[in-house]
């Protein structure tokens, strides 16, 4: 019986419905925009989740102009910044209108079926980082407890967990908000930076991270933390979170992986 249904499925390929537009499409059929991701599981999620039309709307960041924040254009923010507690950040997609719409669908409308796809998209930011170094732990920027109760889920955490599974990295919650801030989307750059100060703290007690290196030439290998968030706009959140992490883990290096870079 199982064999028969498998055979039937082989003979008559089932169409899938696009997670976003609901249109039926054939997996592997037709020409599709390329996906700049190597991980086969992530590719599969995107190939089976989105129709050709929707996947072509993803503005992948393929070439970066700012080596620090991973912005595809020349970046003034990183030049202006005096101290930078994180090492570098990479974004997966540009935050254009289409991505704005997608994120709103997931975050505010609560379309949680997009979760796996978002995690897979994040892979485009993670792979360049993984190409450079190894990571000890993945963590995410937490949302305010009040908003968490309202929304029911922490989007950055969910996406980070999904991505961590794809790359077999351990995910650990490491941060908490100690102060409630208003919505970031209504503020300018300066306000954001001011507003974010002292918002985060590392969870205590700190995790036992890293390992005793057996390599001869790197006796003090730093702990590398991958910090995940959904959007990077001015880097204020990233800076604050990295600062909080460094305070608790003095020998750590923080790298940012962002779903979108605006």
């Amino acid at each position: 019986m199982i064999g028969a249904s498998k055979l039937l499925a082989l003979l008559r390929p089932q169409g899938r419905n696009c997670l976003l537009c609901g249109q039926t499409f054939q997996v592997g059929g037709g020409r599709r925009a390329p996906i700049p991701i190597r991980n086969p599981a992530a590719r599969k999620v995107l190939d089976e989740g989105f129709c050709a039309g929707c996947i072509s709307r993803i503005p992948w960041i393929v070439t970066i102009a700012c080596p620090i924040c991973g912005r595809p254009e020349r970046c003034g923010d990183c030049l202006r910044r005096r101290e930078r507690p994180f090492v570098k950040c990479r974004g997966a997609v540009r935050y254009d209108d289409a991505m704005k719409e997608w994120l709103a669908l997931y975050k505010y409308r609560g379309l949680e079926r997009l979760e796996a796809a978002f995690a897979a998209m994040l892979a485009a930011a993670v792979e360049p980082l993984l190409g450079e170094t190894r990571f000890d732990v993945v963590t995410s920027v937490p949302i305010a407890p009040l908003r968490l109760a309202d929304r029911g889920f922490d989007q950055a955490e969910r996406v980070a967990r999904g991505m961590a599974v794809l790359y077999r990295l351990p995910y650990r919650p490491m941060l908490r908000r100690i102060r409630h801030t208003g919505k970031q989307s209504f503020k300018g750059r300066k306000d954001r930076i001011e507003d974010m100060k002292g918002t985060f703290a590392a969870l205590s007690p700190p995790l036992a991270l890293g390992h005793v290196s057996e390599a001869l030439f790197s006796p003090t290998d730093p702990v590398r933390i991958m910090l995940v968030d959904d959007i990077y706009t001015t880097g204020a959140t990233m800076t604050e979170c990295s600062r909080a992490l460094l305070a608790a883990y003095p020998n750590a290096e923080v790298y940012g992986a962002l779903w979108a870079r605006s």
Binding site: R109, G110, L111, E112, R113, L148, D150, R151, G152, F153
Partner: peptide, 24 residues
């Protein structure tokens, strides 16, 4: 769809996807 829900603390809190366009 059943998801983990932080507002009630359950791991399998059902959410309706048919009317998601008008709020969850």
């Amino acid at each position: 769809r059943r998801t983990r829900c932080a507002s009630c603390g359950r791991s399998g809190c059902a959410v309706c996807e048919a009317c998601a366009t008008l709020g969850r």
